[in-house]
């Protein structure tokens, strides 16, 4: 009894020490790189603030500095959640889903008959979806919203006996829940993937997805501002340029390939995965921009200084998270 207890403790201690020994340098290295990037960005922003002269330049630099300040907060929040464990990460993403859904529904016309369905979307669908992710019930969390909620929302609305804009209202509520809750929940679901031969914590896969998707956005913005000439689609997203997309996208793929050390992928596989994340992220941002034009707004919200709303910051993750999750699950588990 005592000896088996002792050997159990030794085994546990050994595995924890091994895990720490393998993750710690990586984690420190990544935190150092992120911190360095933020410090450099902050310094560049401060220098630019002193050097610009034109009013348009002032606006650009002010927006740039607001973005950098918000990045500090977002990185700190994300790092805290990852260090505090998978449940805290899950709660953080559930909160982001709630806030993103709130932004989406705020800009969408709703009528009295939609009230019950929307109430359930916020207070039942969001917690239930993340609970299913948290207990690792893949079979249900992957169909809960596309099957059950898909039918429940119009069924509840139809009880209101109001046919005005019925299809439009139903479709918008379904899109809101799919984007803000279903797609987003696939990012923390990476923590529950059981990949044979992959000893590092699943949080690093989430970190990989977020890093590649967000750096792709940042570098597309930087490349676009510096060398952008050819507008991609002025009618949808005036700031997107071909030069920005290609330069920023390739830079993010290069970084994603280099980061293969924190993933179960070979460098070539990591390059492919990064390309998927960057492409899906680009289309996510592009599709959500088209929706914003349709609704007649510039940003989804005002919560994050310089970035707009939560959905403005998550738009690239929304499309890439389910793809990255399913590709990894299909080929690596």
């Amino acid at each position: 009894m005592n000896s088996s207890m002792n050997s159990l403790i030794t085994t546990v201690t050994d595995s924890v020490t091994t895990a720490l020994a393998t993750t710690k340098p990586l984690f420190l290295w990544l935190s150092g790189a992120t911190l360095g990037l933020l410090v450099v960005a902050t310094l560049i922003g401060a220098v630019l603030a002193h050097r610009v002269r034109t009013p348009a330049g002032h606006d650009t630099v002010r927006n740039l500095n607001a973005r950098i300040r918000s990045w500090w907060v977002m990185v700190a929040l994300f790092a805290a959640a990852m260090l505090l464990g998978s449940v805290v990460t899950l709660v953080l993403f559930a909160l982001l889903s709630y806030l993103a859904l709130r932004e989406f529904i705020t800009l969408t016309p709703t009528r009295r008959g939609d009230h019950a369905g929307l109430f359930l979307s916020f207070f039942v669908v969001v917690p239930l979806q993340y609970w299913l992710v948290g207990i690792g019930w893949y079979g249900l969390f992957s169909i809960f919203i596309p099957v059950y909620v898909f039918m429940a929302l119009p069924s509840l609305s139809v009880l209101g006996a109001d046919t005005t804009d019925f299809l439009t209202r139903t479709a918008k509520a379904q899109w809101g829940v799919m984007l803000a809750v279903y797609c987003t929940s696939h990012a923390p679901a990476l923590l529950w993937l059981d990949i044979p031969g992959y000893e590092l914590p699943g949080a690093l896969l989430l970190l990989y997805l977020m890093t590649v998707a967000q750096l792709s956005d940042v570098f597309q913005y930087v490349f676009g501002k510096l060398w952008g000439r050819t507008r991609l689609s002025p009618g949808i997203s005036p700031s997107k340029t071909v030069e920005g997309l290609v330069g920023g996208g390739l830079t993010a793929v290069a970084i994603g390939t280099g980061l293969h050390v924190i993933t179960p992928f070979t460098p070539l596989q990591a390059a492919g995965m990064s390309l998927v994340i960057v492409t899906a992220g680009f289309f996510g941002g592009f599709v959500l921009s088209a929706m914003k034009r349709d609704l007649g707004v510039k940003d989804w919200g005002t919560m994050i200084e310089g970035h707009g709303g939560v959905l403005d910051r998550l738009d690239s993750v929304v499309f890439s998270a389910p793809l990255f999750f399913h590709l990894t699950r299909y080929w690596f588990t």
Binding site: R102, I105, T106, H115, L118, F119, F122
Partner: peptide, 18 residues
């Protein structure tokens, strides 16, 4: 702005909106 959509008169449920 918008608060009448959060809790319309006679509706016991609340929908969060900005």
């Amino acid at each position: 702005e918008n608060l009448h959509r959060v809790m319309p008169k006679g509706m016991p449920l609340l929908v969060p909106l900005i």
